[in-house]
Simulated assay, not measured.
Amino acid sequence: MVIPVHDVNPVRRTPWVTYALIAANLAVFLSMPGMAGSLTGEGGLAQQCGLQAYLDHWAAVPQELIHHQLPRLVPTGDTGVGPRGPGCVIAPPDYDKSPELSVLTAMFLHGGWLHLLGNMLFLWIFGNNVEDRMGRLRFLLFYLVCGYASAYGFALTNADSAAPLIGASGAIAGVLGAYLVLYPRARVWVLVPFLIFLPLRLPAWIVLGLWFVLQAFYSAGQGVTDTGTVAYVAHVAGFVAGMLLAWPLRRGTPPPPEPRGILFGRQARPARRTW
């Protein structure tokens, strides 16, 4: 597994939509119950009950998306003691929920700091060039469409799942798919864990192609979205949607410049082509 840290692909204009999406994801995360001070999203019983109630309200649930059936009882966010000991209090929901709209709100929810920062890193590196090529409004619509495609793609393969689906991963997977189509030869600096983290500069088609192959491989297993698991099917669906939507733009996209100048503190050789 490689960790991308920077791409050698300058943009012509400031990617305000990419910045706004990152800011929105951070703001929503900080407003989630107990998330601001937690690295993984885990905590005490009161915090878990509050978070579970929050997610049942705002997260996308495959069962609700496919069957359009809302649960009769949901956690209230309070704790109590029952026959089996302490637990979360459940009651009929005191709110109305639109399953279709929940896909939109779920795109801005994350299960912990690691989940958030990992997604934002990929959006920061690859989103600016895709936005630059598509334009701001079209990029925003593209991002949301990929998010919906990933959520419904996962829901169709897990129609009876009641586990909440959260995160921007599906929409960002669409950004990665578009980047692969538009800039397959752009160089990407990555860190490869091999005893230490080794910095390498690789073409985007290797970095993103490897990422997609791994997601497709993992999705062949059990792809669920419960605590500690990842919805790999959603990543695959979002990536494919991004590729398809960006395909008509590939012919008119100028190639990225050859990397020159000082990169990672070392002087690159102008006349030399590297992989």
Rank of each mutant, 00 (worst) to 15 (best):
G50P: 10
M243P: 00
R250G: 01
V240K: 05
S102Y: 10
T157M: 13
M35V: 05
L180S: 09
R251E: 05
W16S: 14
G77V: 00
F139N: 01
W247C: 03
Q222K: 14
T76R: 01
R266H: 10
L101F: 12
G80T: 07
K97P: 07
G80R: 10
V28D: 08
W247Y: 05
A53V: 01
A246L: 06
Y19V: 12
F212D: 01
N158E: 12
M35Q: 15
L200N: 10
T227C: 13
L200V: 09
P92G: 06
C88H: 08
L26S: 14
W113L: 14
Q52M: 11
V2F: 06
H57K: 14
A162W: 15
T253D: 11
A60R: 00
A268Q: 08
G265C: 12
L30P: 03
N129Q: 15
V188N: 01
P256M: 05
H57I: 01
Q222R: 15
V190T: 10
A178M: 00
H115V: 04
L109S: 05
A168N: 13
L114W: 06
G242S: 04
F154Q: 08
V190W: 02
L109C: 13
V188W: 01
F108E: 02
V61S: 03
G228V: 08
L245Y: 00
M120A: 06
Q267A: 14
P164T: 02
R266A: 13
L141N: 13
A27W: 03
L165N: 06
Q52G: 09
R12Y: 08
L202F: 08
W16N: 14
T253E: 09
Y54I: 00
V5F: 07
T227H: 15
F212I: 03
P33Y: 00
A178V: 00
Y218F: 15
I172R: 10
A27N: 11
P193C: 05
G41Y: 03
H57M: 06
V213L: 07
F139I: 04
L191Y: 11
P99Y: 01
R273K: 10
P259F: 07
D226N: 14
D56R: 05
A168Q: 14
T225E: 12
T18E: 05
F197M: 14
L140V: 08
F126N: 01
S102P: 11
L30Y: 04
N25H: 05
Y183T: 03
L104M: 15
P203W: 01
F29C: 02
V8I: 15
P199I: 12
I172W: 07
P257Y: 03
L156W: 09
R273S: 04
R72E: 11
I166Q: 07
W124P: 12
R250S: 09
S31W: 09
G223W: 05
Q222H: 15
W113H: 13
L214V: 10
G41I: 01
A220S: 13
S219M: 10
G44K: 00
E64T: 00
A149G: 01
L208Q: 04
Y19K: 11
Y148H: 03
A216L: 06
L182V: 03
V188H: 02
M134G: 05
